[in-house]
């Protein structure tokens, strides 16, 4: 699925990167509110579902090259975060759904978790 499908499934608001949604293909996602967990377990090009909205989440996305971020529970990030994401061409979506439901909807639609896909992993 692409990010546009994700947006429609979650009835999400687009905060950044609307022009990119159709072209970014998503193969896996990860849901977490802990930065070290995201760094340790999220694969490249994954979609992150999170309740964290501070600027460090954009830094994290930059380090591991995420494809996009979905903010859950209707938690709107600050303008500084949206600006930073636009600079990095990182799409941001906002859904009112809680984390568990957001994950469930995408998983049911066929989006895999980061531990299920074999990419170049290092143990």
């Amino acid at each position: 699925m692409n990010l546009r499908d994700v947006q429609q499934l979650l009835k999400a608001q687009v905060l950044a990167g609307d022009d990119l949604l159709d072209q970014i293909e998503i193969k896996m996602a990860c849901g977490s509110d802990l930065i070290s967990d995201v760094l340790a377990f999220t694969k490249e090009k994954a979609l992150l579902l999170t309740g964290l909205t501070n600027p460090q989440i954009i830094r994290t996305a930059e380090m591991i090259e995420l494809s996009g971020i979905v903010f859950v529970r209707g938690k709107m990030p600050g303008d500084d975060v949206i600006k930073l994401a636009k600079e990095h061409r990182l799409p941001l979506l906002l859904t009112t759904l809680p984390l568990y439901e957001t994950c469930g909807i995408l998983y049911s639609a066929g989006l895999k978790g980061c531990s299920e896909l074999d990419t170049v992993a290092r143990g």
Binding site: L34, I35, S36, D37, L39, L52, N54, Q56
Partner: peptide, 12 residues
């Protein structure tokens, strides 16, 4: 609250 403090930094 910012998402740090999992105690996973050094192990990572």
């Amino acid at each position: 609250e910012m998402g740090f403090g999992a105690g996973m930094g050094l192990p990572n």
